[in-house]
Design a binder for these strands. Structure first.
Length: 379
RNA sequence: GGCGGAAUGGCCGAGUGGUCAAUGGCAACAGACUGUAAAUCUGUCGACGGGAGUCUACCAUGGUUCGAACCCAUGUUCCGCCA
């Protein structure tokens, strides 16, 4: 269980294709994992997620702790059973909420004391709390409780987050080994370090020295330039274990995924396909489209004629824009459907290309075709 | 036919002598969204101009006033109530 096998590697870039075995099935990498924070990938049923090729989805410790509460999930028999999802689940530790809900909390090495964003009640999060909760959830992959550093951050602040993340990783691992079912759940470590090479190296050394079955790269895609993200991935690609899966947390944006794969990343997750979908922005093989745009009003053809998703096979841009303008719930569903399928397909195509020995060509073609005039990135 | 009320920018609707090119909301247009406090948020929104600014505007016409979306007169249209 939790064996990672690299089955093909790109001889030019760092890209690799692999298989990661979990209790709920084998995950073929590279893989994009839809985010289902509250035990639902917003707007999609489990059936539909399977249809579009979702191999694994995410759940969130903090959010599920508040609602419906661990008691209810335990009674339901765990998260898989509760939400009727039969494939693997990865749970985030709540570490990201230490970052995203920063205004509501106080952080010490011991714990994070924060206020619920729902009713303001006091809540104490810690590595032990997170491991316990993730045990209740029964995810296939649990994540260490970490501190995601904001961007920009001074070297001093980033270093403190690295230091604390290592302390918390040790405690996460100890509690996990003693209390969780290690036959059914794997715990991944998380590397921090912001955009500082020395901190990335130090964090990778400390975290990867703890022998986790997989390693995540956290603290990126938080506002830094794309070039900075790619540089950090280059640094980490050299030093992270090659025989373990690598998970770039919170990415993402289609070009970031492709560039991440080129730098040896195997797993990705991001709210972008689902959130942007609900807000009527879609990704296509030739770039990004705001489907509310007046220019689509009389376009009686698909969003992306190369896409094999339900929305692109059955509906015109004109109709989809109409749904978006009316705020119809079907619009949100179809855009989400498309974006998830498109993003999952990127990973599938990358995998096929790696196995076929044609990843550099895939990378070049994708980058040339994916135009995003509005992107303020430098990539 | 009589009495009363109302007419404001694409729509609804504030304003009731100067600080009003005119609050809000909606619509429209554009933008943002990267381990989800997001089916959310931001900007623009009379015309021309890069801007300073200029022009045209609160049903119509005339008037009062230094000054009117706001006061007066007449007209037009609409809405009530009574015949």
């Amino acid at each position: 269980m939790f064996e990672f096998k690299v089955i093909a590697q790109c001889p030019v870039t760092g890209a690799r294709a692999g298989e990661f075995t979990t209790p709920h099935g084998v995950i073929h990498t590279p893989v994009f994992m839809p985010v289902g924070t509250l035990a639902t990938v917003k707007a999609m049923s489990p059936d539909e997620l399977e249809t579009i090729g979702s191999q694994i989805i995410l759940g969130n410790t903090y959010h599920l702790y508040l609602r419906p509460t661990p008691e209810i999930i335990a009674k339901a028999g765990g998260l898989h059973s509760f939400m009727n999802w039969k494939r693997p689940i990865l749970t985030d530790s709540g570490g990201f909420q230490v970052f995203s809900l920063a205004r509501l909390q106080k952080i010490t090495d011991k714990e994070v004391i924060c206020r619920s964003h729902i009713d303001g009640s006091l809540l104490t999060m810690s590595p032990e709390w997170s491991m316990n909760m993730q045990g209740v959830l029964g995810s296939d992959i649990a994540m260490c409780f970490d501190q995601c550093c904001e961007y920009p951050a001074t070297h001093e602040k980033a270093e403190d987050a690295v230091r604390r993340t290592t302390i918390w990783a040790k405690r996460s691992r100890e509690y996990f080994m003693a209390n969780n079912d290690t036959g059914k759940q794997a715990l991944f470590g998380i590397v921090q370090g912001s955009v500082y090479d020395d901190l990335r190296r130090r964090s990778a050394e400390e975290i990867c020295g703890m022998d986790f079955p997989g390693y995540a790269i956290g603290g990126l895609s938080v506002g830094e330039e794309h070039s900075a993200m790619y540089h950090s991935l280059d640094v980490l690609n050299e030093i992270m274990p090659k025989d373990k899966p690598r998970y770039l947390m919170g990415v993402g944006y289609p070009p970031n995924i492709v560039e991440g794969i080129a730098r040896g990343v195997d797993m990705f997750d991001c709210v972008m396909p689902t959130r942007n979908g609900r807000n009527a922005t879609v990704f296509t093989s030739f770039g990004r489209l705001n489907m509310r745009g007046a220019s689509h009003a009389e376009e009686f053809f698909p969003m992306d004629s190369e896409c094999d998703c339900y929305a692109c096979r059955n509906f015109s841009r004109s109709y989809l824009r109409h749904l978006a303008m009316c705020g119809e719930i079907l619009g949100a569903r179809l855009f989400t459907w498309h974006n998830l399928r498109f993003t999952i397909r990127i990973a599938e195509k990358a995998r096929e290309a790696i196995i076929a020995g044609k990843f550099p060509e895939f990378l070049r073609d994708f980058t040339e075709r994916f135009r995003d005039d509005n992107s303020n990135s430098d990539s």
